[in-house]
Simulated scan of single mutants.
Amino acid sequence: MAEIYPLLREAVTAGQKSIQVQIFPFRMSVAKMLEHEGNPNSQFWKNLKVGYDSFELSRKPPLVGSCGGRYVFASATGTELPNNPLGDCPGGASKSISEVAANGSLDGERSPQINGNPQAPGAHAYSDGSMNPYFRRILEQKGAAKLAEMTSLTNVPVSRPQAALFEPHLAAPMTD
């Protein structure tokens, strides 16, 4: 973040209205994905890898949507993506890891080893910390709808409010 923040500050100072940032847990090569295969977040990371591979191939940020409790990606401008993490996904909402690999992924033929079921990532909790205290208070005091209104330009709902309140280091919901 120390490297990114000055760039963001300069862009905002220069008048840029919004900045798209993708942050991944690590370089998502096949070797790294296999190295972290036993991690409780691996199903979620497989879902992120679809967007990661799309960027690595095109060098353009993919369009990102959400449905069915997962992210969906598209590389074509004008492609309409679902934007409801709680809603059902329409058919063909996102490429799978295998489809990205078939279209020239940097990972080549080893992608099926990590493919599993990228369309249905499992539940996960962030073990590197908990929810931002400011957002936690809003969620606890004003509810998921208010948090979504305050943090999303398109009012995307908070997909799992109880999971967001889970404190992984205490193994119980935090009450502040």
Rank of each mutant, 00 (worst) to 15 (best):
Ser18Arg: 05
Ser18Asn: 05
Ser18Gln: 09
Ile19Cys: 05
Gln20Arg: 13
Val21Phe: 11
Gln22Leu: 14
Ile23Lys: 02
Pro25Lys: 11
Phe26Ile: 12
Met28Asn: 07
Ser29Gly: 15
Val30Ser: 10
Val30Phe: 05
Val30Glu: 00
Lys32Thr: 13
Lys32Phe: 00
Leu34Ile: 03
Glu35Asn: 09
His36Cys: 07
Glu37Gln: 13
Gly38His: 08
Asn39Ala: 15
Asn39Val: 05
Asn39Cys: 06
Asn41Ser: 12
Ser42Cys: 06
Ser42Gly: 04
Ser42Lys: 01
Gln43Ser: 14
Phe44Cys: 12
Phe44Pro: 10
Trp45Gln: 04
Lys46Trp: 04
Asn47Met: 00
Lys49Asn: 07
Lys49Ala: 12
Tyr52Leu: 02
Tyr52His: 13
Asp53His: 04
Asp53Arg: 00
Phe55Lys: 00
Glu56Arg: 08
Leu57Asn: 13
Leu57Gln: 15
Ser58Trp: 00
Ser58Ala: 07
Ser58Asn: 06
Arg59Leu: 01
Arg59Cys: 00
Arg59Ala: 02
Lys60Asp: 10
Val64Leu: 09
Val64Asp: 04
Gly65Asn: 09
Ser66Pro: 04
Ser66Met: 07
Ser66Arg: 04
Ser66His: 09
Cys67Ser: 08
Cys67Leu: 04
Gly68Cys: 03
Gly68Gln: 06
Gly68Ala: 08
Gly69Ser: 14
Tyr71Phe: 12
Tyr71Met: 05
Val72Leu: 01
Phe73Cys: 03
Phe73Gly: 10
Phe73Val: 14
Ala74Glu: 05
Ser75His: 09
Ala76Met: 06
Ala76Ser: 06
